[in-house]
Amino acid sequence: MAALIEEAGRFYSYYNLIYLGKAFLFTILLSFAGCGIGFVLGAGLAVMRHPRIVSFAPLRWFALLYVELFRRIPFLVLLMVVFFAFQLAGADVTMFTVAATTVALSASAFSAENVRAGLESIHPNQWDAAEAMNMGGLTALRRVVLPQSWRVIIPPSMTYSVGLVKATSIASQIGVLELTYAAKILNQKGFSAALCFGTILVLYFCLCYPLNLFATSLEKRLAPSRNR
C-alpha cells in the first residue's frame, strides 16, 4: 500500500493527467455521438415498425429483423464485424469512426425497442380519434402520440445510454484512445495496474453515476399519469 502511495506521485504527473483527460473526453464524445445517431435511427425504426403508420408489411418486417438481430449481437463481436466490414468496403476511416458506428448500430436497436414501448403505451383509441379528425399516420404521430409518449421513452433511454458509456470501454480492443485504452497504455509503461485501472474506474463512475441519478429522477418526475 505504501508503495502505491509513493507511486501515485509519479502516476499523477502533468502529462499523464492530460492524457487521461483527453481519453475521458473521447469516451464522452464516443458515447454522445453513438447515442445521438443511434437514437435517431432507432426512432425511425420504431416508427417504421408501427402498423398504424407504415402499411407496407415488408418494411415492418425489415425493422423487426434489424432490431432482433442487432439487439442480440454482443458489442465486442459487432465491433469486429464493423471493423472488418469497413476494411472490406475499402473505406479508410479512423478507429474512432468504427467505434462510433458500432455504438450507433447497437444503440439504434435498443432505442427502437424503447421508442416502440413508448408508442405502444398510447391507447389505440387515440389513433382512432386522430384518424377521425382526418389526420394521416405521421400527423397523428407528431400531434397526438409523440407529445404523450416521450415521457415513457426518455427515462429508459437515459438508463440505456449509461450502459452504452460502459460499453465503449470495449472499443479499446481496436485501439481507440478512450479511458480503458489509456489505462492499458499507462499500465504497459510500467505503472501498477491497481493505479491505472483504479483511476479509470473512478473516472467512469464520475461519468455514469450522475447520469444514472438523472435518469432515476426523470423516471420519478415524468411518471405518466394513470388516467389517459
Partner: peptide, 22 residues
C-alpha cells in the same frame, strides 16, 4: 451495488486480473 452498476465490466475484470496480483 452503486459502484458496480456505474463502472464497465471490462475494467472491473481488468482490475481483478491485473491489479489483484499486487
Amino acid at each position: 451495488v452503486v459502484f458496480f452498476l456505474n463502472t464497465p465490466l471490462l475494467v472491473q475484470i481488468f482490475f481483478l486480473y491485473f491489479a489483484l496480483p499486487d
